[in-house]
Design a protein around this nucleic acid. Structure first.
Length: 434
RNA sequence: GGAGGAUUCGCCUAGUGGCCUAGGGCGCACGAUUGGAAAUCGUGUUGGGUUAACACCCUCAGGGGUUCAAAUCCCCUAUCCUCCGCCA
């Protein structure tokens, strides 16, 4: 949520910033609703003060004794009339504040100054790291995973339908090894390990920015009487992590708070599949380790760089060829001011695919979730929140398999995973001989 | 799923319709005292909103109701605790 005061003070500045996302916003309605709300609020508060005064007088007269009975009766009916006016203004206040809130909820975050304007096409590649593996006739990850007996796509679809798969044997080991590697690295860096609930409440969805705008992207398993989501399946650990400190005032000394979480991520992906996104590149459920920080406002830019570097370190540790992009404003998710994508090279499709997205929300999520800290003057001030995948494994496994495949059909497993997986995986048919 | 109980400031608690403008303790901050500290004493200490300001309004888990007036009475919901049932 944006700061309403900023919009009141300088709507043109906000409008210009949002234009970079290629959306045109007119604040006319918002500002006029806001003005009505405040006028009504003043009248309402005045009436409340009046009633309070009358009630106080009644209280005093009652103590004085029976003699004042008639006077009390007069005051009582006066107060009753005021009460009716209060009720009217309260219901008006409710309507106006709901209208104002829903206009405010629809506004995305302001892109940072250094974020390029425009849509996906305006994304900037910042750097390309490592060498493209030199492969003669590369197999794609589906052929590799099936040939090596790592993933069972057919039976996966039988169990969970389209967009589901089963990791089997060494495949499951490898997937878990990636997770272990990430966990180990984040623990080393002093991040706190979190395993969140997979069923989240509507409040958590609102705080992270899922609701009300992106409700159709997630699996809602329970709705309240108004048909609003009350329980939904975690679409990313970020949604859970934001809400850890929802409605809290943190002490300045305990910032930054650094967390990481593992959870499966459940997504409807209603956009549908692109034909090249076969195998485990896109599904309704995938594994991800997510990094998250709550920082003081002045520290969030440095924290953003730190988390990007951590994501890249994981990629380098795996020996993968990847690139880093700065997303254009239109491609940056609504809650974020700036996002870096780390994209792994997938040889079979000749493209780089996102395996990590590292974003700074600044105070946008914190304002929705009312996450504050004791600022310099001891007054509560909003924290900044940042999140970044570290990393999404289900999409990484294809990169690992394809980039490390050998001429004999085997795959060399990166050394950092050897504690939990074999160093080389050979095709099922030939494995019996060794 | 059933039956009871609970939810008041960072923590513990007082409070059964109007001197509650919510009291006390702990903790915390500042000050006094001290060579310095402990102890002691004093002062302050929930958030939020409207307003140029003075000031006012809201906030006792959340929502609704009764009343001139609600932390207090009634209803609904959430969460936690205890017991019963079921269960990995």
């Amino acid at each position: 949520m944006l700061d309403l005061n900023d919009i009141r003070r300088d709507p043109d500045r906000i409008r210009t910033a949002l234009a970079k996302r290629e959306i045109e916003i007119d604040f006319g309605e918002l500002l006029s609703v806001d003005e009505d709300y405040r006028k009504n609020q003043q009248a309402l508060e005045q009436s409340r003060a009046e009633r309070k005064g009358i009630s106080g007088q009644i209280s005093q007269l009652r103590r004085a004794g029976e003699s004042a009975a008639q006077e009390i009766e007069q005051l009582r009916s006066r107060s009753q009339a005021v009460g009716e006016r209060i009720a009217e203004r309260e219901s008006r206040a409710g309507e106006l504040s709901a209208a104002r809130q829903s206009l405010l909820d629809a506004l995305p975050n302001l892109p940072d100054d250094d974020v390029p304007a425009g849509g996906k096409d305006a994304n900037q590649v910042l750097r390309v790291v490592g060498d493209r593996p030199d492969l003669d006739a590369p197999l794609d990850h589906v052929q590799l995973a099936e040939g090596l007996g790592l993933v069972d796509y057919k039976r996966g679809a039988k169990l969970g339908g389209n967009g589901s798969w089963i990791y089997t044997g060494v495949g499951a080991q490898l997937e878990w090894a990636l997770l272990n590697y990430f966990v180990q690295t984040h623990l080393r860096d002093g991040y706190t390990f979190v395993l969140p609930p997979h069923l989240l409440t509507g409040d958590s969805g609102y705080a992270a920015g899922q609701f009300p705008k992106f409700a159709e992207d997630v699996y809602v398993v329970e709705e309240d009487e108004q048909g609003k989501p009350s329980k939904f399946l975690i679409p990313t650990s970020e949604t859970a992590l934001v809400s850890i400190h929802r409605d809290e005032i943190l002490r300045a000394e305990e910032l930054p708070r650094k967390y990481f979480a593992y959870s499966p991520c459940y997504r409807k992906e209603i956009g549908g599949y692109r034909t090249y996104e076969r195998g485990t590149l896109r599904g309704h459920q995938f594994n991800k380790v997510e990094m998250f920080q709550f920082t003081r406002p002045e520290d969030s830019l440095a924290a953003h760089e730190e988390m990007l570097e951590k994501a890249e370190e994981l990629m380098r540790g795996l020996g993968l060829h990847y690139r880093v992009s700065l997303l254009a404003a239109g491609d940056t998710s609504a809650s974020m001011t700036k996002t870096f994508d780390v994209e792994a090279w997938i040889p079979s499709i000749g493209q780089y695919l996102e395996v990590s997205s590292v974003s700074n929300s600044r105070d946008y999520q914190a304002r929705r979730a009312r996450i504050r800290y004791r600022g310099p003057e001891g007054k509560p001030a909003l924290v900044h929140t940042l999140n970044g995948s570290g990393l999404a494994t289900s999409r990484l496994l294809p990169a690992v398999l394809e980039q490390n495949q050998q001429a004999d059909g085997s795959v060399l497993v990166p050394e950092v995973l050897h504690a939990w997986a074999p160093a080389r995986i050979s095709p099922v048919a030939t494995r019996t001989g060794h």
